[in-house]
Design a protein around this nucleic acid. Sequence first.
RNA 1: GCUCUCGUAGCUCAGUUGGAUAGAGCACCGGUCUUCUAAACCGGGGGUCGCACGUUCGAGCCGUGCCGAGAGCGCCA
Length: 668
Amino acid sequence: MTLLELQDQLKTLVRAKATEIYGEDPGKIAVEVPPKTEFGDLAFPIAFELAKRLKASTGEKQNPRKIAEEIRSDLLALEIVQDVQIAGPGYLNVFLDRPKLLNLAVSSEPPFKKSPDSPGKICVEHTSVNPNKAAHIGHLRNSVLGDTFVRILRSAGEDVEIQNYIDNTGVQVADVVVGFIHMEGMDLEAIKSLDAKLQSEGKNFDFYCWDLYTRVGIEYQSNESLVEKRAETLHSIEEGDNKISELADYVATRNVECILKTMERISIRYDLLPRESEILHLHFWQKAFEMMKERKVIQLSESGKHEGCWVMPFESHEGSDDHENDKILVRSNGTVTYTGKDIAYQMWKLGLLGLDFKYRPFTTYKNGQEVWITTANDKRAIAPKRQYGSAGRVYNVIDTRQSYPQQVVKQGVATIFPEKGEAASVHLSYEMVALSPRAAEELGFKLSEEDRQKSFIEMSGRKGLGVKADDMIDRLEKNALEEVSERNPDLEKDKQENIARQIAVGALRYFLLKFTKNTVIVFDFKEATAFEGETGTYCQNATVRLNSIFRKLDSEIANRALDSLDSRREKLVEYFGEKEGNGLWAVVILALRLEESVKQAITQAEPAVIARYTFNLSKASNLFYQKHRILDEKDEDRQALLIAIAETSRRALTASLAIMGIEVPERM
RNA sequence: GCUCUCGUAGCUCAGUUGGAUAGAGCACCGGUCUUCUAAACCGGGGGUCGCACGUUCGAGCCGUGCCGAGAGCGCCA
């Protein structure tokens, strides 16, 4: 039995009693967490609701406290319920049996039981950085949100597949290819030797492309003929099987390798890399197009401004006489739009397309896990070990600026397959990471007076304006290493470095997770590199301190303490009842709420819920650590209690940090 | 012009489905290391929840209007 199941049990009971009092089912039963531990563990505001309904139906005014009184006795009958108090205007505050729940808490851990309304396999697409340059901190927000959401789903027992879409035939790749060929005068061989040279100097290929991409953007402004080259280049890349597409493939693939390496530094890995080139060459669009025509959800526009285009009619809002909201999927020149391709891809993800990619292994991570990539080449294709795609639900982690096209994809797929519905496609949208004017200047960018007045400045890959992910991680590792070596001068160098790496990853991931999705993160170096206050480092440190107790504690004493809780029941009741008992209990009950936080994070599609939870538990834990000494405790029963609380807390902390992709260092 | 998001302490942000005295971090002031690690803990000051009206037992949260900030609205990707 978990706290969540217990909560459901109480809800059922309250509902039954409420039905009896009111005469019919009152619907949803709200459960709240009381604002203070002294007010109990769970609160039902049901009496207000019933008083209101009774007044509406009988006209008689009812006292909520009196109604609460009736429900109270039913709840008290449960063994796990210690007490029920009626507070304020009519809250039912439930106090649970503390020793019993403590015993439950010391052994509860994710993965939790899968919810009965699980959609089956879930696909999460995240990262999807254009493979023409290095990733910056804005891309990291996408990846960290996506990766954490995957971990959240998995901790809730779900089966998840992680896809990182590679737009290897798009304009952005074409831009860098234009730069290599027409500005640098390089062919494939020249690029390969440049790449080898960069590697021997310890430099990154994606960093080189970052700068080249910026230079191309500047050159476009004054060089008409280069802009023409872009269109030609893009066309060759899309077509494939030629010198230019071969060169583009090398550039894109090398950038993908670099980006994957960057992401692995912060513990982000993928299952599959689906590429746009295969969506084109395996004719996904044509198949989707056929199905859409068959199901009559797409039509050829015969007049008006969209004449000659295949459109999907949309009525997102009224007053659109001229079919302005129709979404063009095929242009009058016969080419398909980005949204059209996206609908086909989404159909594949949901197993609705009736076509599949071909696959081959791409790389193997250090831990032995493999990433696969799509291919259209029969000779290179290998039968995959699992089926990709065909998910019951798909989450696309894409920034909020793409809300409109994502809405079109969602509605489009649901229109073609009403049996699947809109709920199968979820746009996990988030706001961008922007730079504070100060941060932009620290990066060496000259700002106009106008920009300097702004509260934030949007990052731009095209302008080369942004904090590169690898630079950020390097900086955090360096800062962390200084602290670690100062605090642990006797530790071997490589251990210090590993701890510094864990701290850097923790700080970065937590920083990107603590803001809710729809908050613009205005990036500031001071805030982002902090190791104190509400940071990942704080949460790691709270856990490390608890672990250090167990390192010094005789493991036999620890085990005996955890096994003997039942026999010490009388004493535990006494200690929990003391003045400091609520403080002790607060840690346990919070630790027990991890599962609830995970469920809430899923319902709201909001990873920040877990960050907030972890921070709150860390605070409670630090307070506990400060107040109570375990090793020196002479009273054996009290020591057992403290050990159990410490164990409960460090388990929950370790688990919630792991959900955020944050490791717990051995020392700090 | 239309659509969406946002406006909460000096700054950066939380605020569970409408519930109890609106919280946290930073900054500032004061205290706590001979201790299981002080990347920590305790205390203090600091609020017209943008403004107005409405809905109700109850509104930071819901509705309407206004003010202010940002984003999106292409036969680009």
